[in-house]
């Protein structure tokens, strides 16, 4: 069945984010003859629309009032975009903004949202699949109302490529918001973000000390700083060994990389909730019975202190 799909875009450095391009790629596959549109809000939106591959139409406002996402302002614009696009499906990133926009847009349109989807397919109607119970289960839903809304995990679809939107429709400037942002503070490790990186190297409590993360960073650098980032388990973050922004798990970031290397991580379900969607998991752990090996494709049973430097050396050799 044909679907008119609206992708709620987000921007970074004047272009649609990689997740936005993935949503557009997913939308192209699901539209089946329907239209794919994108909404882009904030400074540079019109220019970014030309880079929104996969969208035929863009609903934009360049108003800087949209730059820091205040949900109430965005919701008013998105409702207008849903109407004008005739959208029966809305795709939103499972991001800080998306976590708030999805449910509130659903409430305003008297419909429902499936949060944190990792798969959407047309099988006699759209089916939305997402992890639940800390990753112990998967749940597949259908939405009985229109538009069907989903927030989608990064790396769930292949990114769209090619030309951006040619038909650009202006949305009104940002309206009122009852909440007022009084400050923002950046707190991230430098470089590639773990949610965007094709390879994530994560360390856990089993590293034994914060210095262990130096070895994780060396491994990431050996793989390539342009594609590998370093994550941490909640236990390691709670011990203050690595910043909260790098936490992988139910209460941290959900990552979906091509390769997830879990070092000295036991694999508690709350951690696996953040990484079980990885295409390949490699586990390095001293305990051959660790839960993580149940999820891993490849494993090394051994002491990370010996294994990780050896791995660094072998990767360098192979390059």
């Amino acid at each position: 069945m044909a679907h008119n799909i609206l992708v709620v875009g987000e921007m970074a450095d004047g272009a649609p984010t990689s997740t936005t391009l993935e949503l557009l790629g997913g939308a192209q596959g699901l539209a089946a003859g329907g239209t794919v549109s994108v909404a882009l809000l904030g400074t540079g939106a019109s220019a970014a629309a030309a880079k929104a591959a996969g969208a035929s139409k863009a609903f934009v406002s360049d108003d800087a009032g949209y730059d820091a996402v205040k949900a109430e302002q965005w919701l008013a614009a998105l409702e207008a975009a849903v109407d004008q696009a005739g959208a029966d499906v809305v795709l939103i990133a499972q991001s800080s903004a998306g976590r708030e926009l999805g449910p509130r847009l659903a409430a305003r349109r008297k419909t429902a949202v499936a949060m944190d989807c990792v798969k959407i397919e047309d099988a006699g109607g759209l089916k939305f699949t997402r992890p639940a119970y800390g990753g112990n289960a998967m749940a597949t839903y259908s939405v009985a109302t229109s538009p069907a809304i989903a927030t989608v995990r990064a790396k769930s679809f292949e990114a769209a490529t090619g030309a951006g939107a040619s038909d650009v429709v202006q949305l009104p400037a940002a309206g009122a918001s009852r909440t007022n942002i009084t400050g923002r503070e950046k707190a991230v490790a430098a470089g590639l973000q773990i949610t965007e990186a094709p390879v994530v190297v994560s360390g856990g409590r089993g590293l034994g000390a914060p210095e262990g993360f130096k070895a994780m960073e060396e491994l990431a650098t050996a793989i390539g700083s342009e594609k590998a980032a370093v994550g941490a388990s909640r236990a390691a973050v709670d011990l203050g060994w690595y910043p909260p922004s790098q936490q992988v798990g139910l209460t941290g970031k959900v990552v979906n990389p091509d390769l997830y290397i879990a070092v000295a991580i036991s694999g508690a379900s709350q951690h696996m909730a953040g990484c079980s969607g990885s295409k390949t998991i490699v586990a390095i752990n001293r305990d051959k019975d660790a839960n993580i090996f149940g999820f891993a494709k490849y494993g090394i049973v051994g002491d990370w202190k010996a294994v990780v430097p050896a791995l660094v050396e072998e990767i360098k050799k192979a390059k």
Binding site: A112, V113, A114, K127, P131, A132, G135, N136, A137, M138, A139, T140, Y141, S142, V143, A144, S276, T280, I281, A283, K288, F293, G294, F295, A296, K297, Y298, G299, I300, V301, G302, D303, A306, V307, P309, A310, L311, E313, E314
Partner: peptide, 27 residues
């Protein structure tokens, strides 16, 4: 939101453990 199916996902399958007498060989 209609729950159509709740299921336990298949894990990656059987893990393949790297053989080798030394960490270097495993790596």
């Amino acid at each position: 939101l209609k729950l159509e199916k709740l299921f336990i996902p298949e894990k990656g399958g059987k893990v393949e453990l790297m053989e080798g007498d030394t960490p270097q060989a495993q790596a």
